[in-house]
Design a protein around this nucleic acid. Structure first.
Length: 577
RNA sequence: CGGGGCGUGGCGCAGCCUGGUAGCGCGCCUGCUUUGGGAGCAGGAUGUCGGAGGUUCAAAUCCUCUCGCCCCGACCA
């Protein structure tokens, strides 16, 4: 491809509406343009990157025995009503009507549709297992889309679904997909971690998220320093005795009521009383799906995990209660709740078991209690559970040797054991060898293709621009003649370009009549993995320069060898067969 | 949905408070010079100042409404 034929409107300034680096760079490097909030155009270079991710995903899935299909983007309401999600999904589901006022939605995911396919076609255990996937534009009407491609409303996703006669086979496929995902993100050239994840409303099932490691990631994950255990902080298990010693290290003291006018948050009361937050009992009132209010306790310096709370309660959903409920439950306004004397269902995090000399709200306006002791002052009817988010330094629950270190991640994939959540309501069943009818066991597997592009940039950039992994680079190599008016230089560059293409290498030649500096700056901004510079000085010595974007150092190659050398690098990256 | 901010040439911004014929940088076009890290000089083009209404002799500027975009919040007591 010739630069002069390509639409590459690079920008010198950051766009005013971009916040995160991937958004800024993808716009500046002429990959994407915003059309509406959370909705983007892909310009030629951006599309090439997107296609590269797609190609890897397809290749690995096809090799893993999956079959590609394409389902409609616009789905009839009836299917969603059958599964119950038409009512439950909320405003994220973009609902539309056709000319006859029939309801449809723009698919945010396709469990219903794919299950419909299978229930209409699969009859017997002999038809199982099956693994179907598609790569398709999805739409989720996010409350607050942001960060460019990281959290768009419209996005490209690979969604896959597998169907099995029994749970064991489904679990086998789950592991198979897990391994396939590892290969996919490896081939993309990304540093990532597969972590155990919250399973949401399914409950008690398996799920792993694939997180691209980047400091700017929205998700917090922990990984054991000694074994392979890694999990989202929301989900990471903690041993029951973690923090026990800490709870009991304070001296027992008399319970005392203190005035704390207007001091509501842990931080405020901590400063006001001069006591550190880890001596506080944070008392949170939640509403749950069974209609009642429940009270959750975690240590002042800990964060509650709603995912864990949900599991501990066996609830479908939990949410912090509103001010009115808090008042009704505790007798005081938000900020003064505590477990002492509280008539409510209370669950407490293990770290509070046996705590002494603690601080908590007094359930009275502008008052806290000091010297609170578990067992003496509260504890009747209190159940203990693992409720808090994990932190760096917490002990690993698996190997017992290591501790957690914390990373930030961008979720680019998730594998999920679904069971019969959709097959049951939608009536997707099969007959076993004995003629018995059973609901089909399902797994679901997603990859955010467009988000993977953004994650790659978040993880791989410097002050000059993007540093694409070779597998994703819009072109693996760019040939840059320092001048197109200098005939020998132009001819040598064209020869090199032609030789590369003849070898099957996707090459771009910057044939613009621009000064070298302009071309170099654009090359760095766009982030081509390899750059071959052809200039007068080099040609005089019979060499051209190979520069790896990541290294920023030049290697001289003889004019005769350059094409073969670069072809070898590109071939080893898997970009050409 | 609540709070805040911003819409001025392709991009980034100033001008608005205190109304008086719309400006800067980059980019773009022409010419000459230049040619290994976003060149120099000279000349030039480009704006319904987001939209609608209002106030006024006069509105980018003041008022009302509206649309769009961005940020924060809408879970940590």
């Amino acid at each position: 491809m010739r630069f002069t034929q390509l639409l590459v409107p690079t920008l010198k300034d950051d766009p005013a509406d971009a916040e995160v680096v991937s958004h800024k760079l993808l716009v500046r490097a002429a990959m994407i343009r915003q059309v509406a909030r959370g909705i983007y155009d892909y310009l030629p270079l951006g599309l090439r990157v997107l296609r590269n991710v797609e190609r890897i995903v397809r290749a690995e899935l096809d090799a893993a025995g999956c079959q590609e299909i394409l389902m409609p983007a616009v789905c009839p309401a009836e299917l969603w009503q059958e599964s119950g999600r038409w009512e439950r999904y909320g405003k994220e589901l973009l609902r539309i009507q056709d000319r006859n006022d029939r309801d449809f939605c723009f698919g945010p995911t396709h469990e219903e549709v794919v299950t419909d396919i299978v229930r209409k076609t699969v009859r017997s255990y002999r038809d199982l297992p099956k693994n179907l996937y598609q790569i398709q534009t999805k739409f989720r009407d996010e409350i607050r889309p942001r960060f460019g491609l990281m959290r768009g409303r419209e996005f490209l996703m690979k969604d896959g679904y597998s169907f099995h006669a029994d749970r064991a086979d489904c679990e086998r496929e789950y592991r198979h997909m897990y391994e396939t995902y590892e290969r996919i993100f490896d081939r993309c050239g990304l540093r990532f971690r597969a972590v155990e994840a919250d399973t949401g409303a399914i409950g008690g099932s398996m799920s792993h998220e694939f997180q691209v490691l980047a400091d700017s990631g929205e998700d917090a994950i922990v990984a054991c320093t000694s074994c392979s255990y890694a999990a989202n902080v929301e989900k990471a298990e903690l041993p029951p005795d973690a923090g026990r010693a800490h709870a009991q290290q304070a001296q027992s003291r008399a319970l005392e009521r203190v005035a704390t006018p207007g001091q509501r948050t842990i931080e405020e009361v901590s400063g006001f009383l001069g006591m550190s937050p880890d001596r506080f009992i944070k008392t949170l009132v939640f509403a749950t799906d069974d209609g009642g209010a429940i009270v959750a306790l975690v240590r002042g310096d800990h964060q509650i995990s709603e995912a864990k709370l949900k599991i501990a309660l066996g609830a479908q959903w939990v949410a912090l209660a509103d001010a009115e409920t808090v008042h009704r439950t505790t007798g005081a306004s938000v900020g003064f709740a505590g477990p002492v004397g509280l008539e409510a269902r209370i669950v407490a995090d293990h770290a509070l078991n046996g705590i002494r000399g603690a601080v908590t709200g007094a359930n009275r306006e502008d008052e806290h209690l000091v010297g609170v002791e578990h067992g003496r002052d509260f504890g009747k009817g209190v159940t203990f559970a693992d409720l808090r988010q994990a932190n760096a330094g917490d002990p690993c629950p698996r190997c017992g040797k290591g501790t957690f270190e914390e990373h930030r991640g961008i979720e680019v994939g998730q594998v999920f054991y679904l069971g019969t959540k959709y097959s049951k309501p939608l009536g997707a069943t099969f007959l076993d060898a004995g003629g018995q009818e059973h609901p089909i066991e399902m797994g679901t597997y997603g990859i955010g293709v467009s988000r993977t592009v953004a994650a790659a940039v978040e993880q791989n950039h410097d002050k000059d621009g993007i540093i694409w992994p070779l597998a994703l680079s819009p072109f693996p190599v760019e040939v840059v003649p320092t001048s197109v008016t200098d005939e020998p230089v132009r001819e040598a560059a064209e020869k090199l370009y032609g030789d590369l293409r003849a070898q099957g290498v996707e090459a771009l030649i910057d044939d613009r009549d621009e000064r070298p500096g302009v071309k170099f700056k654009d090359a760095d901004l766009i982030g081509f993995s390899l750059r071959l510079t052809v200039g007068q000085k080099g040609l005089a010595k019979g060499v051209v320069e190979l520069r790896e974007r990541r290294e920023k150092t030049n290697h001289e190659l003889s004019v005769a060898d350059a094409a073969a050398h670069v072809t070898k690098i590109v071939r080893e990256s898997g970009r050409i067969a």
